[in-house]
Design a protein around this nucleic acid. Structure first.
Lengths: 246, 246
DNA sequence: CAGTGGTCTAGACCACTGT
DNA sequence: CAGTGGTCTAGACCACTGG
């Protein structure tokens, strides 16, 4: 039960956080239940108070626990009511899993194209440059959930077929670009379903759909890596997020 | 320049963060510029390293700075490119200010109503209970930006006219409910403009608009305080958010 | 009151970056 | 190499909550 590997490369606070996360997700620590006090965890895991607090801060920021001054630390009662953890981004695949679906992907095509102007400027490109463009459809329990078009700066025209390789998009992106994706600047709009989207989602043309655009950035926030257009089928996935007071 | 009040009620890390925030917003520390190292700040403000790091963590979570291991800490180059700070929520008024508009509000009406079922269940109400309902329109530079309908649990049928009182919605909410709003569970949908919305936004009926629903919660996450329907005019305000790797 | 989380110190060592 | 941020310790005192 108590498992901290002191020789691991992983930081101790990280291992403790992961341990508690598992206990929460497994139901061992159900929503609303009380966590051991920081001092108890100190003794139990033989860690300093600051290290225990570091772990708690991580879980706190994720929205998984609530800390009540002078009272105790409790498992959030909302932990299963939002898809978007605080301040983190997700791959479409993971979003579907979090929403309780079994994800699958249909790969449509890969090609080299001159991107739309919004994409071009976001990626800081010249007008004569082309991008690699992947088009995919994600399914949740075989219902069409997301229509995705990714524009990559890399020259590679390697096909990206997640359904075959099993490789996540972020992994693929980082492997081909050599950069680590650290930030995503996202933009959310309500738009009318184009014929392409309507056919995919089996809805009427002009139906309101959510367009989620993502600009992938490295740790310096100045090197764009890719741009992504994601149309969401609201029947399958919704945007639910938990925010807190500033 | 160096101003830390050691007798203040405010924590030292908080004062340091506030100091740096001001220097960033004033342009004294422009985007991309390098902050003093943690050890320099230690000496400059006569604080321990941990306290300095605590301040940096706060700014980091806000997305205001970027920390680069072995290199330095820098002011984010995106600080003006997203409306939603990480993990925090905003009042409509503040959103408009952040987007560069001069906000104003038109107060439409206050009444006691039986709320829609989604609202009723979110607020954990019985079918025979009524809510106080406020309807407002927010303007940015006199353009209609948000159409808002708030459902409050409080009995009060006091009119809430922000344009007269100058009181923020959160303040009003906390004053009348006696609870402090600590969390907002939000839900984002693309919907067709109803006749009411179309008239307000001066767009065609059926145009896709963004519906942002908010459930206001107290610190325990178990006491609902209010529910809010916000229709956003995408011509005026967009949802742009910065997320980071989990 | 005892117990909780919140703040703070003064050290230490490590991992990483640039020159 | 010197300098940066990342992790960790072992203390201390405070502010708050409940019985």
């Amino acid at each position: 039960m108590i498992q901290i590997n002191r020789t691991s490369i992983l930081p101790l606070y990280y291992q403790l956080a992961q341990n508690l996360r598992k206990q929460i997700h497994s139901g061992e620590l159900p929503p609303g239940s009380c966590l051991p006090s920081e001092r108890d965890l100190m003794v139990e895991y033989r860690l300093s108070r600051n290290t225990v607090r570091h772990a708690m801060e991580v879980l706190d920021h994720e929205g998984l626990i609530v800390r009540d001054h002078g009272h105790g630390t409790f498992v959030s009662q909302l932990s299963d009511r939002f898809e978007y953890k605080l301040e983190t981004f997700y791959e479409n695949w993971d979003l579907l899993e979090r929403a309780g679906y079994t994800p699958s992907v249909k790969y449509l095509e890969t090609c080299r194209v001159y991107p739309p102007e919004t994409v071009r400027t976001a990626l800081q490109m010249n007008a004569d440059q082309r991008t690699t463009c992947h088009t995919l459809v994600f399914y949740g329990d075989d219902h069409p959930a997301m229509f995705t078009r990714d524009y990559l700066l890399t020259e590679s025209d390697e096909e990206f077929d997640i359904s075959k390789s099993g490789e996540g998009f972020l992994n693929y992106l980082e492997r081909t670009s050599g950069s680590r994706v650290e930030y995503v600047l996202a933009d959310l709009q309500a738009v009318e379903a184009t014929p392409e989207i309507a056919a995919t989602f089996q809805c009427a043309e002009g139906t309101p759909v959510m367009l989620y655009q993502e600009l992938f950035l490295d740790g310096s926030q100045s090197v764009p890596i890719a741009y992504s257009l994601n149309y969401f089928n609201q029947q399958i996935v919704q945007f639910r997020l938990l925010t807190r007071r500033g």
